[in-house]
């Protein structure tokens, strides 16, 4: 898995309780309060959206809310920067396709 269990300097990562969310309809687990992008990464999800013009895949790039490449549709809302939006129980996360949810 992509999670660090124990770190030689930082010890065991301090994470929130386990919560369930969905990604494109598929149920996934993550830690409450961690950025949505981190929960997706831990689940092996690389593609967050497809661009409008060229339909190219994009994912995490800056991870601090600046580049806006990781935006997705979250709970029906477009262009949510998943790298800085905390994960909550029951969130509905969808791949963004241009400016709509994938398959919408």
């Amino acid at each position: 898995m992509n999670r660090i269990e124990e770190h030689p300097i930082l010890g065991e990562p301090q994470k929130g309780r386990e919560v369930t969310f969905t990604f494109d309809g598929k149920e996934m687990k993550g830690c409450e309060g961690e950025p949505i992008a981190m929960a997706l990464k831990a689940n092996g999800v690389m593609i967050h959206r497809y661009t409008k013009k060229e339909h190219k895949p994009r994912g995490i790039f800056c991870a601090i809310g600046r580049c806006t490449d990781c935006v997705m549709v979250v709970n029906g809302k477009l262009n949510v920067r998943t790298c800085i939006t905390p994960l909550e129980e029951g969130m509905v996360v969808q791949t963004q396709d241009g400016v709509t949810a994938k398959g919408a």
């Binding site: 790039f61 800056c62 600046r66 806006t68 490449d69």
Partner: peptide, 8 residues
């Protein structure tokens, strides 16, 4: 002029 406003 997109979402990131030229950050990158």
């Amino acid at each position: 002029m997109g979402l990131c406003q030229g950050q990158t």
